[in-house]
């Protein structure tokens, strides 16, 4: 297949359709609109359903319905819309339904603005909705990964029967880069646990209620066991020049791209810098950070927030090495030059 110069948001939708996604339920919000707009073009042509819901609350519950019916289903939103969806995501996790949710992060809290931020890390990674659950969280850093991680997201969602969040931001969505699309599309199939209105699936029940404490505890521990398994089998990250690195940057998404420039600039000045880029934010690559803590002198976390992922880095490093933090927020994107200045000021 030829390479295509394509926006991240559109690459995400094409990756979803190739992964067998045949239902998209969404509600307009900037900067995630291109996803719904592309889905409205492609998913009906692929024999699926596109529906603009009356709210994000309805959209995520339509996702619940589509997933219950055994269809690979997705939605996309941003900050305020994601907050509204948290109720539904909790139900989806509780009822063990697979789905993919793209969060094209914008500035918050409240209405904030529509410029890129990474301030929904806690919401995505730590739960967001009520109860003991986690979504698996994937953090693309290129248009290629907007496609690839969405494709992977549908497989992971099915494998774990759990919601998967693709956590990106407005830059990744708007940016055009060459993308090579997967050449083996997934054929839609109805899983055996789904409810599809046939005799074979009549005994099936989709529910998140466990009224007896013992029953609910058992259910929660079952979910927990899935998350533990995901830690072992699904943790993904990229090492960039960490082999001999004494200063290890940690950043995800668009920030990781800027940090690669920073690493190059510092290396030119004789500083052994490297980058650990988490690709899965949940499960978080803590073991790799622990390993690097044996070699590196210092960690430097950069986020487009006041510091959210840095907490997980500090937990992973266990106080063995200093962990510095630099963040920009409000929709400001740190430049490589200003990060280099910060490094010289604080390291």
């Amino acid at each position: 297949m030829p390479k295509q110069l394509i926006k991240g948001n559109e690459a995400l939708v094409k990756g979803a359709v190739l992964a067998g996604c045949r239902a998209f339920y969404g509600y307009p919000i900037t900067p995630a609109n291109e996803i719904a707009e592309s889905a409205a073009v492609y998913i009906p042509q692929a024999g699926g359903v596109f529906l603009q819901a009356e709210s994000e609350v309805a959209a995520i519950n339509m996702v619940y319905g589509g997933a219950s019916a055994g269809v690979r289903t997705m939605t996309a939103s941003s900050g305020p819309g994601m907050s509204l969806m948290c109720e539904g995501i909790s139900y989806i996790a509780g009822a063990e339904l697979p789905c993919v949710i793209a969060n094209i992060m914008r500035g918050g809290p409240g209405l904030g603005n529509i410029a890129p931020e990474q301030s929904d890390y806690f919401q995505a990674v730590k739960g967001g909705g009520h109860g003991c659950y986690h979504a698996l969280v994937l953090a693309p850093a290129s248009a290629q990964e907007m496609c690839d991680l969405t494709f992977l997201g549908f497989d992971l969602a099915d494998k774990y029967r759990n919601p998967v969040i693709v956590l990106a931001d407005g830059c990744l969505g708007q940016m055009m880069e060459p993308v090579e699309f997967p050449t083996t599309p997934r054929a839609p199939r109805t899983p055996e646990w789904a409810v599809d209105g046939t005799a074979a699936t009549r005994p099936n029940l989709i529910s998140s209620i466990y009224l007896q404490p013992d029953d609910l505890e058992k259910h929660i521990l079952k979910l927990e066991a899935k998350y533990k398994r995901a830690h072992v089998e699904e943790t993904r990250w990229e090492n960039y020049r960490t082999d001999d690195a004494e200063l290890v940057f940690v950043g995800y998404g668009i920030v990781a791209r800027i940090l690669k420039s920073v690493v190059e600039k510092l290396r030119m000045q004789g500083i052994k810098a490297g980058l650990l880029r988490p690709i899965t934010l949940y499960p978080f690559p803590a073991p790799e950070l622990r390993r690097l803590a044996g070699q590196a002198q210092q960690f430097f976390v950069v986020e487009m927030s006041t510091g959210q992922m840095v907490e997980d880095v500090r937990l992973a490093v266990e106080g063995r090495r200093p962990v510095e933090f630099y963040g920009r927020c409000g929709g400001n994107i740190p430049t490589a030059e200003e990060i280099v200045e910060e490094v010289f000021a604080h390291v």
């Binding site: 309805a58 519950n61 996702v63 319905g65 589509g66 219950s68 209105g197």
Partner: peptide, 10 residues
């Protein structure tokens, strides 16, 4: 909302 998606799927 859930009924909508179930019916649209099947």
């Amino acid at each position: 909302a859930v009924a909508t998606a179930l019916k649209r799927a099947h």
